[in-house]
Design a protein around this nucleic acid. Sequence first.
DNA 1: CAGAAGATCTGC
DNA 2: CAGATCTTCTGC
Length: 205
Amino acid sequence: MTHGPPRAARRRRLRRTFYDRDAVEVAPELLGKLLVLDHEHGRLAARLVEVEAYRGADDPGSHAFRGRTARNATMFSRPGLLYVYFTYGMHWCANAVCGPGTTPHAVLLRAACPVEGLDVMRERRPTASRELDLLRGPANLARAFGLDRAHDGADLTRGVLGIADDGFAPGDISVTRRVGLAPGKGDDLALRFAVAGDPHVSRRG
DNA sequence: CAGAAGATCTGC
DNA sequence: CAGATCTTCTGC
């Protein structure tokens, strides 16, 4: 997989209908897409190489498993929004809310290949010695993009934050079990999707 | 109201 | 492989 921006490629922002489906359908289609964020100093862009699908009442690994709470309210609101949550006392993680409708599905953005704004990413990720590690892992990706509580509920279909299709087609996709779930909490479900062999993926499947 | 767990990361 | 670090949720 080559990650450089295709010359003169048009970036088309993904619309609400893209997200308005089961997360298991949406997740693999997000691979190869560009996460884009315009900020005060310029633009950040990265190609998604690893994601995980989280469902609702039928998925014990999902924050939506036991219904709506203050934290997960964004998952129940509308497809195409960004659901950002805080965990382990220090990390933020970002998801694209899916559907269909108000079905509380989401796709966790786990890893990406840096494309634009690498200087800003390096400043925010001083412990990343290699460029490969800048966006490797969901909390690292969120940190490099500066995502936190302020971005929970942001609309990916308009505004400064979005996910775009520039015509890039990823290679083979590997499907494995999700990462970091306790036994019995849906750890056995094969809902993690990654670009096979891509070095930016957070870990081996 | 207290206790425990948590969709993680880093350094030893 | 364990510690960091604190919010959120659950049970009493």
